[in-house]
Design a protein around this nucleic acid. Sequence first.
DNA 1: TTCTAAATTTAGAATTATTATAAATAAAAT
DNA 2: ATTTTATTTATAATAATTCTAAATTTAGAA
Lengths: 148, 148
Amino acid sequence: MVNSTPSPLQNLQQAGLRLTPQREAIYALLTETDSHPTAAEIYEILKPRFASLSLATVYNTLETLVNLGIINALGGAGDSQTHYDADTSPHVNLACLACNTIVDIPSTLVQEIHQEVSQNSGFKVLGARVLYYGLCPTCQAKETTPNR
Amino acid sequence: MVNSTPSPLQNLQQAGLRLTPQREAIYALLTETDSHPTAAEIYEILKPRFASLSLATVYNTLETLVNLGIINALGGAGDSQTHYDADTSPHVNLACLACNTIVDIPSTLVQEIHQEVSQNSGFKVLGARVLYYGLCPTCQAKETTPNR
DNA sequence: TTCTAAATTTAGAATTATTATAAATAAAAT
DNA sequence: ATTTTATTTATAATAATTCTAAATTTAGAA
Ligand SMILES: [Mn+2]
Ligand SMILES: [Mn+2]
Ligand SMILES: [Zn+2]
Ligand SMILES: [Zn+2]
């Protein structure tokens, strides 16, 4: 046995890019959370541990990782900020338009769709953004009691 | 027989809103095209026929229609503009990141996912954004011949 | 037909997420 | 060491969208 867990970040070096502390920290944060954070949120979380971090670096890194297919950009979720997801396996993301959180929903059907689309479209499919939106249980309760 | 095709725009008046010429034209344009246009594109198309039209009205109307569930906001497609879709039935949208066009893909699986998500999540599902992205056949050809 | 109040449109200003720029730093190659 | 290349950083610029307030339209009452 050589190495049991080859990190997707290895792809960086294969592409002639460097595995810097900033890139490592940003990717590690993304894999360790299930909150689908935005660039600004990542920046705020990492700033204490990483005094000199720049927001531009966060954006640069996220774009790099997306282009390498290591992470997915999910787009906005009621807010107007792009949310990122280190889980690139086919799954359903479910966003609450009221509190702007995104959770994952297990679904066996998504993988079938992925194949269906790849085969019947003529497109070269690079990624998927399966995002349902609505109101989470907590925010539903607040909605049903509108004002007061 | 009273009326065979009740337009979704009837919902406007039921919600106490007015069915203005601008709203009617914007919705008609969306239903008659399959191009999933942006607010700016809708504005440019309607400006000749509608001299006094304002871009703010296009944004206002699109937001109104989205909130009523009459149309869907698909989000960006490689560009950074929100694309809109008058087809609210469950279907797969497929975006080309190179030319920023979006086409529809028929899929029976999407409807099942919609139910699956609604039942197992506890969310009140208001809409779906099923968007795959990649390269369309035309842009694939251009990619394989990178420079020159 | 006026009159009045609410809804809507409009032009333009403001906001803000993201991208671009250019200098400083760090790492790799020679 | 020196040179080159990649990267980070601070900051400015961009541009999609939203906000604001005045003008216009509409529906209904008088
Ligand atoms: Mn996810
Ligand atoms: Mn569509
Ligand atoms: Zn919520
Ligand atoms: Zn294309």
